[in-house]
Simulated assay, not measured.
Amino acid sequence: MSDAKMLLDASDREMSAAYMMWYRYSRKPAAVIGTLIVLSAIAMAVFAPWIAPHPKDVGTVVNFRARHHAPELAHLFGTDQVGRDILSRALFGMRVSLLLVLGVLGISVPVGTVLGLVAGYFGGWVERVITGLTNVMLAMPPLVLALAVSNLLEPTLTNAMLAITLQWWTWHARLIYAVSKSVAAEDYIEAARLSGAGPLHILFREILPNCVSVISVKTTLDAAFVILLGATLSFLGFGVKPPTPDLGSMVAAGRQFMPDYWGEVLCPGAAVLYVTLGFNLLGDGLRDMFDVES
C-alpha cells in the first residue's frame, strides 16, 4: 500500500511540474504565436505541392510573356524575371530552408551533445582535447567557414548543410559541456558510480536528462540562425543551385529589379522573416517553460 502511495505521489509531482511548465508557456502570448507560426510554416512546406497556386513554376519553366507581372489575383506576389509565380516558389523555398534546418541540427546537435557530455564527465585529457578542438572551430566565423566550404564544393543543399554543420556542433558541445561539468559533481552521480553504474548509464540516464531543457531551447533558437545563414549563402551564390527555389537566391535575383517590382523581394524576404520570427518566439517560450536562464 505504501509503494502504491509513493507511486501516486511521484505521479502527482510529475503532473504538477508538467502543469507549471505548461502554465508558464501558455501565459506568454508571444510563445503561443511562435508555436503557431512554426507549425504553419511546417504545414506550408510539407503541403507546398498542393497549396502552391502554380506548382509547375518551381522547375525550369519560362514564360516571358508573363514576366514581371504586378501582384494580382492569379499571382498574389507577382511573377519574376522569367514569368514564374513568386508565391509558389517562395513556398517551395521555405521547404528548402526547413530541410536545411533538419539536416544541420539533426547532425550537429547529437554530435555536440555527445562530445559535451564526454568532456564534462571524464575530464582530464579527454576534456582538453574536446574543448581545444571546440575553441579552434569557434575561432573561425561561421559565415567565413561556410563560404570557404561552399566555394570548394558544388552548390547543392547537401553541401550547404555540410558547410554549416562543420562549425555548428561546437556551440552545442560548449553548452552541454558546461551543464554536464556541473551535474557530474553532484552527489547522486557519485552514488550511481559507487553502486556500479557504468559510464554510458551515467552519461545518458543521469546527466543527459538534465540537459534536455537547454538542448531544446538552444536547438529552437538555432533553427532561426541556420535559416538566416542558409539564406545568406544562397544570396551570395553559394547555396542551392538554380532552378531549385531558395529564399536567399530569390531575394538576390529580385533585388536588381527594385523598386519597380518589389514583390520579387518582398515575398521571399517576408518568408524568411516569418519562419525565423516563429522559431525565435518559440525558443523564448520554451526558455520560460523550462525556466532556463538566458
Rank of each mutant, 00 (worst) to 15 (best):
V62D: 01
F279T: 07
I33Q: 07
P29H: 09
W262C: 00
I130W: 03
F225S: 14
G248I: 07
D291G: 06
A48V: 08
R95W: 05
V101Y: 01
D57E: 08
L166R: 07
N63A: 12
R24Q: 01
P55S: 12
L266M: 15
D9K: 14
M21I: 06
G83S: 05
G269C: 09
V111P: 01
D12S: 10
A148K: 02
N210S: 13
G248E: 03
G123F: 14
S11C: 01
F238D: 00
R193C: 03
P110T: 09
F92E: 07
S182A: 12
V46M: 11
V149Q: 02
L266N: 06
F225H: 13
A173G: 04
P155N: 08
L87A: 08
I189W: 10
Q167M: 07
L229F: 08
G120P: 02
G116E: 04
N151Q: 11
R13K: 15
F64L: 15
S216D: 00
T220G: 01
T170N: 06
L175S: 09
Q81G: 02
V126H: 01
G237W: 12
L194C: 07
V96G: 01
V129T: 14
P142F: 09
A10S: 09
E190C: 00
L99A: 08
A41F: 05
G103L: 06
A148G: 03
L39V: 15
I207M: 05
W125E: 03
G248C: 08
I176L: 14
A17P: 00
H201D: 01
M20D: 14
F122R: 09
H54T: 05
R193P: 01
S16F: 12
Y19N: 06
P142G: 09
L115R: 05
L105P: 02
